[in-house]
């Protein structure tokens, strides 16, 4: 187990280097000059543009810029954004917001999704199962923006239970509504995956054996059925956590959440190489860590899986 973890951690190094290099060079391939765009519709003053270019080291060869950037990265310096602020500041502002939002959405989809899936799977073909099918179909087919606007209009403007948008992104109670919207699509997938898995495994030999042994129903379901049925769900959840972290751009836009998605979107728009690379580097780490945890969870869930 220890060796497996160590090997996986070592594997992360080339993956990390590769992705950051890819992103760094890809951002530079984007068309347009981010500094000239600071002048808007007007032609930039060539003298000032050259001075800014020099200050940002844009006048050096690309490979030199990359080496400088990576050198800085290993000493904890993420470089500076075009507005002169350290990229690390931007990351530490946006990341906690998105982590909170993602974990809320994640918790919401796990608890409700597995709950619905479990009961639907146990009562296959009954009313609850059918209703769950309709409910999840509904969630899958409604696009996130529609759901977002619907919630805003009903709860924010008509009922006035909450403010339509997030006023303070660091206040976790305000993130509940966006988190529900953000997690709703994955909730449907989790519920369906769980349901199918449970419905299949309930007929498996080990469940019948457990029942025949006279184990209480609670134990049969909890330790034997659910645990083994969660493997496909965990695989999905692992990748989903990464998607929730980086892919919340639409939800963040609707609810005015100043998180990673929004910061990344703005940085890409302004072609801010250092900012984009910095955020992506963080997201890569999150993805890699989530992948490792999923692999380790397999062993916990299924005793047949062993890592050496």
């Amino acid at each position: 187990m220890g060796r497996f973890v160590a090997r996986r951690l070592l594997q992360m190094i080339p993956v990390f280097l590769g992705t950051t290099a890819l992103i760094f060079f890809m951002v530079h391939l984007l068309p347009g000059d981010p500094l000239a765009a600071l002048w808007g519709d007007k032609a930039p003053d060539p003298v000032q543009l050259a001075a800014l270019r020099h200050q940002q080291h844009f006048d050096e060869p690309l490979i030199q810029q990359y080496l400088d950037y990576m050198g800085g990265l290993f000493t904890g310096d993420f470089g500076k954004a075009l507005d002169g602020r350290p990229v690390l500041d931007k990351i530490t502002e946006a990341l906690p917001v998105t982590v909170q939002l993602a974990l809320l959405a994640f918790g919401f989809e796990i608890v409700l999704g597995i709950g619905i899936g479990l009961f639907a799977g146990l009562r296959r073909g009954k009313v609850f199962d059918k209703s769950a099918l309709v409910f999840t179909l509904l969630l899958i087919s409604i696009p996130v923006p529609v759901l977002g606007f619907l919630f805003q209009t009903i709860f924010g403007i008509n009922l006035k239970w909450v403010k339509p948008t997030v006023q303070d992104s660091t206040d976790i109670t305000q993130l509940v509504l966006p988190a529900i919207v953000l997690g709703s699509l994955s909730l449907a997938y989790v519920a369906r995956l769980t349901r199918t898995s449970i419905a299949e495994n309930i007929k498996a030999d080990y469940v019948r054996t457990a029942v025949a042994k006279g184990l209480p129903r609670r134990r049969v379901i909890g330790t034997h059925l659910l645990r083994n049925s969660l493997i496909p769900v965990v695989t999905f959840l692992g990748t989903d956590l990464g998607a929730l972290m980086g892919g919340a751009i639409v939800t963040e836009g609707i609810f005015n959440v100043q998180g990673v998605g929004h910061a990344l979107y703005q940085a890409i728009n302004m072609k801010e190489g250092a900012t984009v690379s910095g955020f992506v580097a963080f997201l890569v780490i999150v993805y890699l860590a989530a992948g490792l945890i999923v692999d380790l969870l397999y062993a916990v869930l299924d005793p047949r899986i062993r890592y050496a």
């Binding site: 209009t153 403007i157 403010k163 339509p164 948008t165 836009g253 609707i254 929004h262």
Partner: peptide, 13 residues
């Protein structure tokens, strides 16, 4: 504001 739509919703309320 991350989007003008969000701002408009806030104005409405």
């Amino acid at each position: 504001y991350t989007s003008s739509e969000a701002a408009y919703k806030d104005l409405m309320s």
